[in-house]
Amino acid sequence: MARDEGFDVFVLGASRRLLRTAFLLVGDRGTAEDLLQDVLERMYARWSRIDDPHAYARRAIAHAATNRWRTRRRHAEVPLGERDAAAGTEPESACRDVLAALATLPPGQRAVVILRFFDDLSIDQTAAALGCSTGTVKSQTARALPRLRALLAFAEEPC
């Protein structure tokens, strides 16, 4: 398959999921869009050398989001407890609550939670995506879930 064709198929098929992952990681739609476009442009430039585009994209997005957290602290995060009394539709309300809860997590824990429970990656896949050990993934998960559970009402899931 030619470069453009293969790349197009990948972008059209995967961009929605990748954008949503980026959105959860950075908590801002515009930033998530910019981050995804930046990652995809870099992938296009080296498309012939990428074996697993999905894994590559997830890893790049997670790293870019982590770098962003390290280099930029001016981004306004949504404080808990400041929900609009006239909350909107269910998805909007859920979005606000979930982003606020994720924002309380350290970057590493946030990334682990999103890759494991949103992208449905295994412990091994999450470790590979974040460039850390499986033990780190387990410990970050164990620390993150109680905190999220205190802020969001959700059922137990196997770790």
């Binding site: 995804l36 998805p91 979005c95 429970f117 959700f154 899931e157």
Partner: peptide, 25 residues
Amino acid sequence: MELTKLLELATTDVEPSPALLTQTR
């Protein structure tokens, strides 16, 4: 509700721009 479903619900309205592919290429 499970955490996975909460995360899904939070991103329901997040859709990529129709121009994403062109801009990316």
